[in-house]
Design a protein around this nucleic acid. Sequence first.
DNA 1: CCCGGAACCTGAAGGC
DNA 2: TGCCTTCAGGTTCCGG
Length: 268
Amino acid sequence: MPELPEVETIRRELEPYVVGRTVVGLSFPWEGIVRRPALEEFSTRLIGQRITGLGRRGKYLIFSLSSGQALVIHLKMTGSLWFKDPEKFVRAIIHLDDGGNIYFRDPRKFGIMWLVDDKESVAVKLGPEALGAEFTAKVLAERLSQRTAPIKALLLDQGLVAGIGNMYADEALFSAKIHPARAGGSLTKKEVERLHKAIRQVLSDGINEKGASTDTYFRPSGEPGTAHSHFRVAHRRGESCPLCGTPLERIPVRNRGSYFCPKCQKEA
DNA sequence: CCCGGAACCTGAAGGC
DNA sequence: TGCCTTCAGGTTCCGG
């Protein structure tokens, strides 16, 4: 699933391929991928524009355009962007002036494209970047205080901190030895500090491994990432804790599968 | 404001 | 073999 490390890997590998290029055409095998404006306006306004930069905010990819507008893409759960034709599940194709193409592959059709004047307008309200300088242990502690929702649910709230998804939340909580169902406000100062450090570590490791290909994530070349092979609990159904050997458990937290070690991550 | 659950969508995998 | 159920989860929306 594309979370911060996966989106960042795609951004880095796509950047030299698209920056400086002009969009010369668009194809939509599935038109529902365009959120706004309406498809015809989306196309007429985007074609002819030069891509001046490729950025990322949380899990959003932002293509800066010569007009000052931005093409924003969210891959949601199963989206990926390819240099070459993945052949199946192609929902949109961006044709470039050098003959290159970007293929938006998305089996489950959750992915979205926007063409906007203000890139901030696509998301409700994003919290600080999980790997940014402004996201400190102190900021995390402030944002968790008084909160009664499970810490796992709060880590997935992009308005609290931007970029963490289900896999890396499980990894960070295991690393910090915190049970996923603990109330966010019940964490001690030491636990919040451990959690903050763990979040930054698992996300950085994920980027260094070029993302985790547990399911439908691919890099633009079509190659997988390797981060999932280093996961200690996420998606490790039926396996044992790498630290103590206790069988890992999976419980739903806010309807999200949460993998953890019941011995290393106590609920009390 | 805060919390929890539904909705969106469809392929893969497992059970019988 | 084939049908059926369950699972996967990022984000927004809505009711309490």
